[in-house]
């Protein structure tokens, strides 16, 4: 067991974290590249820069939505995301891991806040699943990965909470720690290739949406040619 844990913390961790970082970089670069190509080809270079920017900021800091439409869902989502981002990065144990492996350390969450945020993430994660299952519209729109992601995301939070806050026999500790590490690594691996990639793509999505409605220059002629109606007014 201990060997498995060492392997999961060592080579497997390096592999998955590298896959995540490089994979996210890859989708980011490919998306920007694709967007630039699309923009170059577009006949109409007018883009509502201000509008896209405003929408992006509204998505990144969704304070307004809490007070307007679907307040409960928005609040759950925000609280879920706060814990999801802060705890893995600023939990003391993780910072110590970074320090011992790459020599960098940064500010850490106080223990109380770390525990609190873990609990809120788990609770609101479960609430989000319930909300999805409970609403017929949401059920209709959901894919399989939408149901799978939230349990997978809160699994390391649950095991991590147990490991830090309960007295365990060493065997149970190792098993839970293994689940904690491996589930986190599974998240890392699938992150760049599924919808969770929105963690880096979100700032771009509004611009890409805006670009997606641009057609290449003189595309109307081509369409007419294809339809054997050359010269017809569009």
């Amino acid at each position: 067991m201990q060997e498995l844990l060492d392997f999961a913390r060592g080579p497997l961790f390096r592999l998955t974290i590298a896959l995540m970082v490089l994979g996210l970089l890859r989708v980011l670069i490919l998306d920007i590249w694709g967007a630039i190509t699309a923009y170059r080809r577009a006949g109409d270079r007018q883009l509502a820069w201000g509008d896209a920017l405003r929408k992006t900021i509204a998505w990144l800091f969704p304070v307004k939505r809490v007070f307007t439409k679907r307040p409960i869902y928005s609040l759950c989502s925000i609280l879920f995301h706060i814990g999801l981002i802060l705890v893995p990065v600023f939990f003391l144990g993780h910072v110590q891991l970074w320090k011992s492996s790459i020599g960098l350390s940064w500010w850490t969450l106080p223990e109380f806040w770390a525990d609190l945020l873990t609990v809120t993430t788990v609770v609101f994660g479960l609430t989000l699943i319930l909300g999805r299952v409970g609403s017929a519209q949401a059920r209709y729109l959901s894919r399989k990965q939408d149901y799978l992601w939230i349990p997978l995301l809160i699994l390391p939070f649950i095991t991590g909470y147990i490991c830090t806050n309960m007295v365990l026999s060493p065997n149970w500790y190792v098993i839970l720690m293994l689940i904690h590490v491996v589930s986190a690594e599974v998240i890392f691996v699938f992150l760049p290739f599924t919808k969770i990639a929105h963690c880096v793509l979100m700032p771009l999505s509004q611009f890409i949406l805006a670009l997606a409605w641009k057609f290449p220059a003189r595309v109307d002629d081509k369409i007419c040619t294809t339809l054997n109606k050359k010269g017809a007014p569009v």
Partner: peptide
């Protein structure tokens, strides 16, 4: 995935990223 050029770009960059990660794992 787009035109063949973009599709090739997708495939080779994925292979490249994967091999970088494997390299890091077996350092």
């Amino acid at each position: 995935l787009g035109t063949p050029r973009i599709a090739g770009r997708m495939v080779y960059s994925l292979v490249f990223v994967f091999s970088l990660a494997v390299g890091l794992a077996i350092l």
